[in-house]
Design a protein around this nucleic acid. Structure first.
Lengths: 345, 345
DNA sequence: ATTCCGCGCGTTATCGCACACGCAATTTAG
DNA sequence: CTAAATTGCGTGTGCGATAACGCGCGGAAT
């Protein structure tokens, strides 16, 4: 618990000098600078965060670039909840956030949000980006000023200068789903996997993981179907198609938050035979289907914690100037009827 | 973001007076006290925690009464890790902890730890108790001074004046285990449940939950065995007994952290037939058996987070004087080979 | 009447850090 | 060669709250 003052005494200088060394504000001779630095590391000096943020005049602003909260079946409300929680906890540390929403199915909307953000970029100290529209995001990244650090949430763009990625290991989450499906289905038969257009690397990765688990397994027949997310009721239609085309259907894997739509159809029009359904994310509709048994497992990627952590990592990187891990992978929680209650809220 | 000074100005008094009102230090006339209180609630004044703990002279000390870390297969290291993490984060807030360990199989050792704690009770501001030895703990509770708040970790003693309990819903965790076992075992046969002596309510609850799930299910034969924890290699012996007595054995449920001992035996002497094993807690030995497939599922009760949270709740209750929920139930994480990596560390 | 005590309040130092400012001693420019 | 700029350093103030201290006033005790 060394203080600035102690450092100063030891180095035979004033606190002002030590402060200048720490903040690289110059006006210190090379000799004293080295002496001070040595003593700082000798005493393992850590600035008192309380005092620091108490005296700090600057407030930090982070821009949040994410899809409209209600998209993906209100999925985006979950990370936003975490973001708000982090924001309120970091309020005393003078951290504010500024939201820029976009329609994840419209590049134009995305570009609108980006340009709004760029207009006030001078007031921002860091960005949180959910790069759902990967190509459009890549273009946007080139326009971000070099001084401005950014972090990815939910999914990821390779070869960018982002300082960290907060999210899941999509491939492994596919593997996990496959394992669960394997345990569930006791009989031989067909398992359908529902892909989505427009393509999303993140989701594709889950599907790849799913297939990789079943790689050398022959008694289960894997069949891929593709829906177009811009149509109306796409999952309803595709589920209908799946059940009519496969008399030996035993399971459906929905590698996104839309499992509830599949379960809806099955519950209404296919109640006779048990079809196992595995999906993602603890959104309201999925939860109620998990409760009534028409969804068997939900994989949760700690969406709320993702939002929370990403703001905290921004705080660490920008305000505290600490090193942040370049990948922070959230646990893949297996949620079922019997442990759901502890994951809700 | 009202400050003391603003309150003072509005109430036409000095900050000293407002401070005296807030901390009930007297020397304020009834009239001004009410005026100040009114303005405080009008402006929804929340003290700045940073400034508060920066200026605070008092340091808070919490006593930790838990089993030796190495007991239960080093299980207790997990909550302790969380406790240490919380302690280091709360260091700037002037929070210290003081450990009192006991042997969970010796009432005498427990009483020793208690009396040590009571000797320095005047220096303590709160207690964290793992009431593994329930009767002995009940006796101890009567000796705790009324002024001293305490919180339970891991398990619980009813009708006590503890301000909160941090842990799992043991019954429901048994239910969850049963559900998983039900999915795993496809054939008919016997599932063995291993109880422990001396009895532990917590563990018994898990077993009750397990049975309740299978209540009206007849194609699985449930059989209870009991080990004596004070013997040497008890699980080794009991597993041997189980496999020799049940030719139709298909699964074993170990409602505590000792599943690895069961798995040890099976891997060495019973490699031929697949026996499904479900156990608890991410201790090192269990983890390696999960990896090599001799344990199928581990239920994790977020042991590290339990420790972390319990210190934070003490901080909230004692230092911030905020209300704390009387029960904080941790999620029951289902851990398998495929998602283990995200729960490790 | 003087001393004394307690009440009701204001004042001020302190916590550890950030940052603006000021003041010599030098260096650079004109 | 003098004025201006720059370097190297110390001082002082503020952030918001805590808590010790001090002071006037009035009533009780001597």
């Amino acid at each position: 618990m060394a203080t600035l003052k102690e450092i100063a005494n030891r180095a035979h200088v004033s606190v002002g000098t030590v402060d200048r060394v720490i903040h690289r504000r110059g006006r210190v001779s090379l000799e004293t600078e080295q002496r001070v630095k040595r003593i700082i590391s000798e005493l393992d000096y850590k600035p008192n965060i309380l005092a620091r943020s108490l005296s700090m005049t600057k407030t930090f602003r982070f821009g949040i670039l994410v899809p409209f909260p209600e998209q993906d079946g209100h999925y985006w409300e979950l990370p936003l909840k975490g973001i708000e929680k982090a924001q309120s906890e970091l309020d005393v540390y003078k951290v504010k956030v500024k939201y820029f929403y976009y329609d994840k199915y419209s590049e134009q909307s995305f570009e609108m949000a980006c340009s709004k953000m760029l207009q006030m970029v001078r007031e921002l100290d860091g960005l949180l980006i959910a790069p759902v529209l990967s190509q459009a995001t890549e273009k946007f990244l080139t326009k971000i000023p070099d001084r401005l650090p950014y972090i990815f949430l939910d999914s990821y763009i390779p070869n960018s200068r982002c300082f960290s990625y907060i999210g899941e290991d999509s491939f492994q989450s596919g593997v996990l789903s496959a394992k669960l499906m394997r345990i569930l289905v006791t009989a031989h038969g067909t398992v359908a996997i529902i892909k989505v257009q427009p393509m999303d690397y993140h989701i594709e990765d889950r599907v790849r993981g799913f297939f990789s688990y079943f790689n050398n397994n022959t008694d289960i027949n894997l069949l891929t179907y593709t829906v177009n997310a811009r149509e109306s009721m796409p999952y309803y239609k595709i589920t209908k198609k799946i059940v009519t085309e496969n008399s030996d259907l035993i399971g459906i894997y929905t590698p996104n938050a839309c499992a509830y739509q599949v379960a809806d159809y099955l519950a209404e029009h296919f109640a006779g035979k048990k079809i196992f359904v595995i999906g993602y994310d603890l959104i309201k509709e999925n939860i109620s289907h998990l409760k009534n048994g028409s969804i068997d497992f939900l994989i949760s990627q700690r969406s709320e914690m993702q939002g929370y952590e990403s703001i905290f990592k921004l705080y660490k990187q920008v305000v505290l100037k600490e090193k942040v891990e370049s990948r922070v992978l959230m646990p893949l929680d297996i949620v079922t009827k019997e442990n759901l209650q502890f994951y809700e809220n």
